[in-house]
């Protein structure tokens, strides 16, 4: 593994007005997980939106983000190849399950037949074979998560962001789905950034943990990034 592979934060700092929300420096190797923990309002989601390129213009971003040696800081979101899973599955309600997956599949996969085959294979991989023509709104929570996961993986991302994932699944299902996501990230050698306030998520991820301090409005708080072993 070269040093360039994976996701590297080069003294990244995000500020809003006079508040510094996040500072991050370091490297997430392919297949590794960086867990970012902090209470709500501490800038976790902002960090993810900065990495994926969808942050609002009001946030000032300094430093750089490199993915597999490429500086992606100034790139448009669609050019970054950073996959993201939100709390909600956000399946496009106007498309079928298969349509959602095909939306993720890059246009370089040409030909209706081949695209269809890839979609079917992706569904089969998560035990949803034959679901291509279903309305996503008719799927159970666990099924929707799996579709969202495969949609993201089909787009061939080179890094994976998880934003407090799967909050609505019951505990047992949640463990299984989380494991499935992390396993796939590992086998595809994707660096993963997981933000959560749930210690169980952090334990399961098993990587480094970065704590964000809550900031209070109007005060300039020093961030104290700590790196530690998973509990």
């Amino acid at each position: 593994m070269t040093d360039a592979a994976g996701l590297r934060f080069d003294r990244l700092s995000i500020t809003l007005g006079r508040n510094r929300l996040v500072t991050l420096d370091g490297h997430v190797a392919p297949g590794d997980v960086l867990t970012v923990m902090g209470p709500s309002g501490s800038g976790k989601s902002t960090l993810l939106s900065v990495i994926s390129g969808t942050a609002a213009a009001v946030f000032q971003v300094r430093g750089g983000i490199h993915l597999d040696g490429r500086d992606i800081t100034g790139l448009a979101p669609e050019a970054r190849r950073v996959g993201i899973l939100f709390q909600d599955e956000l399946l496009f309600p106007h498309l079928s399950v298969g349509g959602n997956l095909a939306f993720g599949l890059p246009p370089s996969v040409a030909g209706r037949r081949e695209r269809r085959r890839r979609v079917e294979a992706a569904l089969a991989e998560v035990n949803l074979a034959g679901f291509a023509n279903r309305d996503p709104a008719t799927l159970s929570g666990g099924q929707q998560v799996r579709v969202a996961l495969m949609r993201m993986l089909l787009s061939e991302p080179r890094a994976l962001l998880l934003d407090e994932p799967f909050p609505r699944l019951d505990a047992g299902l949640r463990d299984r789905i989380r494991q499935a996501v992390l396993d796939r990230a590992r086998t595809r050698r994707l660096p993963v950034v997981l933000v959560t306030h749930d210690a169980a998520d952090a334990r399961a991820a098993g990587g480094r943990i970065h704590h964000l301090d809550p900031h209070e409005a109007g005060t300039d708080l020093r961030p104290s990034p700590r790196t530690g072993d998973p509990a």
Partner: peptide
């Protein structure tokens, strides 16, 4: 977030 998801999937 639908736009963010679509962009992350490579849609301009």
């Amino acid at each position: 977030r639908y736009a963010a998801v679509a962009a992350a999937l490579g849609a301009g």
